[in-house]
């Protein structure tokens, strides 16, 4: 049975999509069959990291939700060569980046049940080991669904007051949704702070395990989401720390 891992942050800009993409690739590097689904219908973006653009995405999650295709038909094989060499597989189900299509789904809404069916079918048809869900910040239908069906939830936050308050909300919701496993990741910590101290403080504050603390990375910003950081910088501290996160969620 595929394990479903949702990556969420209450506010935008936490580095969620980058972490989701890199984590999935790490899992696939262990020879696993992995898919990433972008449920950030309002502000999709993770496809960029895998080099997809509007022209290369003929079908998207939107088409599935409009009954124009099966969910597997909207899945793109984006396995990096180095991962393929290790027997892994990475599929991506992107959201439409066309303004009119984003508008349509916001105007018309969609059936959560259909999305849920799609996620289950995806796990079966692609024989997945892991399904990673890149969610939209805040609380909305697709986020609530992904938290509800996740085997594991990772909440990413920055060390600032707004993120702290938002994280408390997400944790409260996850608790009510009986999410089996919830972990925190702190990203964009200023380099002057002691990361171990941050880990302890955040874990204590939320009574939830902190499985990664990442410093602000200039290299990451410089890369500008053009490619997958952990493949380009396999020995960077970010990559090392992310391996630690992967060990918690990928077994």
């Amino acid at each position: 049975m595929a394990k479903i891992i949702s990556i969420h942050s209450f506010r935008g800009g936490t580095g969620k999509s980058n972490m989701t993409a890199n984590l999935s690739v790490m899992a696939a590097s262990q020879g696993k069959r992995v898919a990433i689904i972008d449920t950030d219908i309002q502000s999709p973006g993770i496809h960029v990291l895998f080099g997809l653009d509007e022209d290369s995405m003929a079908l998207t999650l939107n088409d599935y939700l409009w009954d124009r295709c099966t969910i597997a038909e909207a899945a793109y094989d984006v396995t990096p060569a180095s991962v393929a060499a290790k027997g892994g597989k990475v599929h991506l189900i992107p959201c439409s980046i066309k303004a009119g299509e984003i508008a349509r789904i916001l105007n018309e809404g969609y059936s959560v049940m259909l999305l849920n069916d799609g996620l289950r079918k995806l796990c079966q048809e692609l024989a997945l080991d892991y399904l990673f869900i890149d969610t939209h910040p805040g609380l909305n239908k697709e986020t609530l669904l992904s938290i509800a069906i996740s085997d594991s939830l990772i909440i990413i936050l920055r060390p600032d007051r707004q993120d702290f308050q938002g994280t408390a909300v997400t944790l409260q919701v996850a608790n009510r949704l009986d999410t089996p496993k919830t972990n925190l990741v702190v990203n964009k910590v200023l380099t002057k702070y002691d990361r171990e101290a941050v880990r302890e403080q955040v874990a204590e504050k939320f009574q939830t395990p902190v499985i990664g603390v990442f410093p602000v990375s200039e290299e990451m910003i410089e890369l500008g989401s053009k490619e997958l950081f952990t493949l380009t910088f396999p020995d960077h501290p970010y990559t090392t720390e992310l391996r630690g996160v992967a060990r918690h969620v990928v077994t």
Binding site: M113, R120, L144, V173, R176, L177
Partner: peptide, 21 residues
């Protein structure tokens, strides 16, 4: 309020939903 927002998603994630699907 929170419960009524969450209940449908909880139902969707339940093993019974999977059985019905």
């Amino acid at each position: 309020q929170l419960d009524s927002l969450i209940q449908p998603f909880k139902a969707v994630a339940s093993p019974l939903q999977e059985f019905l699907s």
